[in-house]
Computed example of a mutant assay.
Amino acid sequence: MKYAPLFEPYKLSEQLTLKNRIVMAPMNRSMADEEFLPTAAMMNYYAGRADTGLIISESLMISQNAQGYPNTPAIYLAEHVAGWRKITDKVHENDGKIFAQLWHTGRVSHPIYLAGQQPWAPSAVPLEGRVPRTDNLQYGIPKEMTEQEIKLIITEFANAAANAKEAGFDGVEIHAANGYLLDQFLHWDTNRRTDAWGGSEENMSRILFEVIDAVKQNITHVGVRLSPVAYLNLKHDERDILVSNYLLQRLNDCNLSYVHTGMFEDTYQAHLQGSVTQYIKSLYHGTIIACGGYNAESGSIAINQGDANLVAIGRPLIANPDYVEKIRTKKPLTVYDAEMLNQLI
C-alpha cells in the first residue's frame, strides 16, 4: 500500500499509543464565543476528525493577557475547562486522542484585546504591520516584561496544563513557535535583554525549559512546537541558529512526548541544510512531528526516510473531515479553499 507508513500505530509512551501516524495540525479558526468558550460547532469539528492518530487543538489562551486575535478559545477559567470537556469526551467516544496547544501571543497583540494595556514581550521591540481582522490598526511597542511577569507567565502555562488535564485532554503542546511569546525569547530580534533571560543561548532558552518543567508537574504528556528559523512575526539574525542548536540538544533530556515542526512550509530552507524537520531531527532524537505543506505521499516518504515519526496535516483536514478514510481507500480529496476558514464542517 502506497501510504502504508501513515497507517501504522505509533507508541507515544507506555500509556499512550496512537492508532495511526496522521496528526491533525493545530489551526486557529477564531470561532469561539465572546467568552472564549468552545462552541457546539467546534465540538463537531474536532469529533469528526477523531480518526486521525492525534488531534492537536487550535491555540488555547493561557490567560486574558495572552490574547492577540478575536474569538480565540481559552483554558484559564472553570467555564473554559467545562466547555473543552464536552469536546474531549466526544473525541474519546470516537476513539480519538487530543492534545491542547497552550499559547501566549506576546507582542503579536494590541491593546484592543488587552483592556487598553500594552502587550508583553521579552523586549520593547515593535512588530511592524497591521493587526489582522481589524480596520487597519497597527502593532505598537510592547512592554518589556519584568522578571516577576516572566515568572507569572510560567505559572500560567502550568495552570493551563492542569486545566487541560481536568478538561480531559490526553496531553498538551507548548506553543514556542511562529513568533509568539516563547518564540520571541528564542530569537535575537525580539530578545535584547541583558539579564538572566537574554544575551546567551542558555539565558534565551531558559523560559522554555522552566515552562516545560512547570507544565510536566501537572500533566504527563508534553510536546513542544518550535520554529527554529525566524520566518513569521520575526526578523532573521544569524545568531539564532546557535540558540536553536543549544535548545534542541538540551530538549533530549526533557522526556518530551514529541517536538513538532512549526512551519507552514517545511521546505523553507533559508539558513538550514534540508528541511526544518530534517534539521530538528539532526539534533533532537525523540519523537518528531513533521508539519508544513505535507500530503499523504510526502508524509509517507518522510516517515520512510526516518525524517519524522508522525506527520501533521492541516488545510486538507479542514476540507476533508474524512481525510483518513479517503487516503486509506484512495478516494479523491476535496480541494481546500480559503473560504472554508469561515465555516466549521
Rank of each mutant, 00 (worst) to 15 (best):
residue 103 W to C: 04
residue 103 W to M: 13
residue 104 H to F: 10
residue 105 T to Y: 02
residue 105 T to H: 05
residue 106 G to L: 12
residue 106 G to T: 14
residue 106 G to Q: 10
residue 106 G to E: 14
residue 106 G to N: 15
residue 107 R to Q: 11
residue 108 V to F: 08
residue 108 V to T: 12
residue 110 H to S: 02
residue 111 P to F: 05
residue 111 P to E: 06
residue 111 P to H: 04
residue 112 I to N: 04
residue 113 Y to L: 06
residue 114 L to Y: 10
residue 115 A to N: 13
residue 115 A to H: 09
residue 115 A to D: 11
residue 116 G to R: 01
residue 116 G to T: 00
residue 117 Q to S: 13
residue 118 Q to V: 02
residue 118 Q to W: 01
residue 119 P to R: 12
residue 119 P to Y: 08
residue 121 A to K: 00
residue 122 P to H: 02
residue 122 P to E: 02
residue 123 S to V: 03
residue 123 S to C: 04
residue 124 A to W: 05
residue 125 V to N: 05
residue 126 P to E: 12
residue 127 L to M: 09
residue 127 L to Q: 02
residue 127 L to I: 11
residue 128 E to W: 06
residue 128 E to A: 13
residue 129 G to L: 09
residue 131 V to F: 08
residue 132 P to Y: 07
residue 133 R to D: 12
residue 133 R to W: 12
residue 133 R to F: 13
residue 134 T to E: 07
residue 134 T to P: 05
residue 134 T to L: 08
residue 135 D to I: 04
residue 135 D to T: 15
residue 135 D to A: 15
residue 135 D to H: 13
residue 138 Q to I: 03
residue 139 Y to I: 05
residue 139 Y to S: 01
residue 139 Y to G: 00
residue 139 Y to K: 01
residue 139 Y to A: 00
residue 139 Y to D: 05
residue 140 G to N: 08
residue 140 G to Q: 14
residue 140 G to C: 06
residue 140 G to V: 06
residue 142 P to T: 01
residue 143 K to Q: 08
residue 144 E to H: 06
residue 144 E to K: 13
residue 145 M to I: 05
residue 145 M to D: 01
residue 146 T to F: 07
residue 146 T to S: 15
residue 146 T to V: 03
residue 146 T to L: 10
residue 148 Q to F: 05
residue 148 Q to G: 12
residue 149 E to H: 11
residue 149 E to A: 15
residue 151 K to S: 11
residue 153 I to L: 15
residue 153 I to F: 03
residue 153 I to T: 14
residue 154 I to V: 15
residue 154 I to M: 05
residue 154 I to N: 09
residue 155 T to F: 07
residue 155 T to N: 14
residue 156 E to H: 12
residue 156 E to R: 13
residue 156 E to L: 15
residue 157 F to Q: 00
residue 157 F to A: 00
residue 158 A to V: 12
residue 159 N to V: 10
residue 159 N to D: 11
residue 160 A to N: 10
residue 160 A to M: 11
residue 160 A to Q: 04
residue 160 A to G: 14
residue 161 A to K: 04
